[in-house]
Simulated scan of single mutants.
Amino acid sequence: MIDQTALLESKSLRTSVATHTDVLDKVKALSLLPDGMHVTTAMVAAYFQVGINAVRSLVLDHREEIEANGYRVLSGAELSSFKELSGIQSHTPSLALFSRRAVLNVAMLLRDSEVARQVRTYLLDMEYMARTAAPVDNSVHSPADSLDDRIDRRIVDILGTAVVPLFNALIETSGEHRKELIDLRQDIQRVERRLCLHHTRLRRLEGPREDRPLAGVMAAIDAMNGYEFEEHIAALLRRDGCTDVVVRGGGGDRGVDITGRTPDGRPLVVQCKRFAPHNSVTSPDIQKFLGAAKVLHKADVALYVATCPFTREALNISAEGGITAVHRGLLEAWSAGTALNVLR
């Protein structure tokens, strides 16, 4: 099995696995810009849960390699054309874009990120399985089975029910080649055990874990309309023990989208915002909600839930005003089963 250190240090190894971009969504859903092909530096930082400067520094150190995998910086007429075609709003003179392959390249280089480490683990396991698994006939299988699962089970079944019993029979009847046959049977049994271990590890990697939100959570949320998003947040509140949860929405909501009570009976209000991942919740957004939550509704607990990050000033005002800022990363974890501390 290849160690992660080799992947971090070997450009040739990174190049050999650079096409396996599907592992990104196996670990955590990667949201794309409206063109369906690129992400910004801020979106890359949000995916790996690191600061923007960490991503910029990595690009500076490995720019040639990352550019070879689809990183580019747009400016002038090219940027204007891209904004017009993609519908994004940006007032900067230049815009750095990462392809999915470039994001995977970042994952293979970024040391101080748990998400990047999980991507590397998954990537190396898939690469190892691709090198060691033999091709077999998969013509009959369940649609829900993955290719790796079907290969594992098929090979293990053949080895356990056909090959090993055949060697047992040969060993019983052979005299001259008995030792060689016993050695071969042991080799086959070792392969069988190794495949079982590989299968178990892949299932563990693909399944939900406490330290990794479910893959596809944010992709599903991004596909919701405003009403569906509010209902989704209401369902999370009810799941975590809140009572009297009502989706207000629309006109006459007095500045909040959801009202209710926490599990211990405190008045609760929620503002839900479906913003594009590259946008941010700003301080005026929080100030407006703060007045509605604390003055109009006299809420003890106020949640501002958004599908994007918050600016630093917005976070500061939230903390000072007693607003819980549920940013994109926290929303993903909440949706995947982790209760918010303020509701406990």
Results as ranks from 00 to 15, higher is better:
Tyr128Leu: 13
Asn138Leu: 15
Ser142Arg: 13
Ala133Trp: 00
Leu123Ser: 04
Ser139Thr: 15
Thr132Met: 12
Arg131Lys: 13
Thr132Asn: 14
Ala133His: 07
Ser139His: 11
His141Tyr: 11
Met129Thr: 05
Arg117Ser: 12
Val115Asn: 02
Arg120Ala: 07
Val140Ile: 15
Tyr128Gly: 06
Arg120Cys: 08
Ser113Ile: 07
Glu127Val: 05
Gln118Tyr: 06
Ala134Ile: 15
His141Arg: 15
Arg131Cys: 05
Val140Ala: 13
Ala133Pro: 00
Val115Ala: 04
Ser139Glu: 14
Gln118Gly: 05
Leu124His: 01
Asp137Trp: 04
Ser142Ile: 04
Tyr128Thr: 06
Val115Tyr: 03
Val115Asp: 02
Val136Gly: 07
Gln118Glu: 14
Ala134Lys: 10
His141Pro: 00
Glu127Ser: 10
Val140Gly: 08
Asp112Phe: 04
Ala134Phe: 13
Ser139Pro: 00
Val136His: 09
Met129Ser: 13
Met129His: 09
Arg131Asn: 07
Leu124Cys: 03
Ser139Met: 10
Arg117Leu: 12
Ala133Leu: 15
Met129Trp: 08
Pro135Leu: 02
Arg120Pro: 02
Arg120Lys: 05
Asp125Trp: 08
Thr132Pro: 00
Met126Val: 05
Ser113Met: 06
His141Glu: 10
Leu124Trp: 02
Tyr122Pro: 00
Thr121Gln: 09
His141Ala: 15
Val115Thr: 11
Met126Gln: 14
Arg120Ser: 06
Ser113Asn: 05
Val115Glu: 06
Asp125Tyr: 08
Ser139Lys: 10
Arg111Glu: 12
Ala130His: 04
Glu114Tyr: 03
Ala134Trp: 09
Leu124Ser: 02
Met126Ile: 02
Arg117Pro: 01
Met126Leu: 15
Tyr122Ser: 11
Pro135Tyr: 03
Tyr128Ser: 14
Val136Pro: 05
Asp112Ile: 00
Arg111Leu: 10
Ser139Asn: 12
Asn138Tyr: 07
Met126Cys: 14
Val140Tyr: 08
Arg131Ala: 07
Thr121Glu: 14
Tyr122Lys: 09
Met126Thr: 03
Arg120Thr: 01
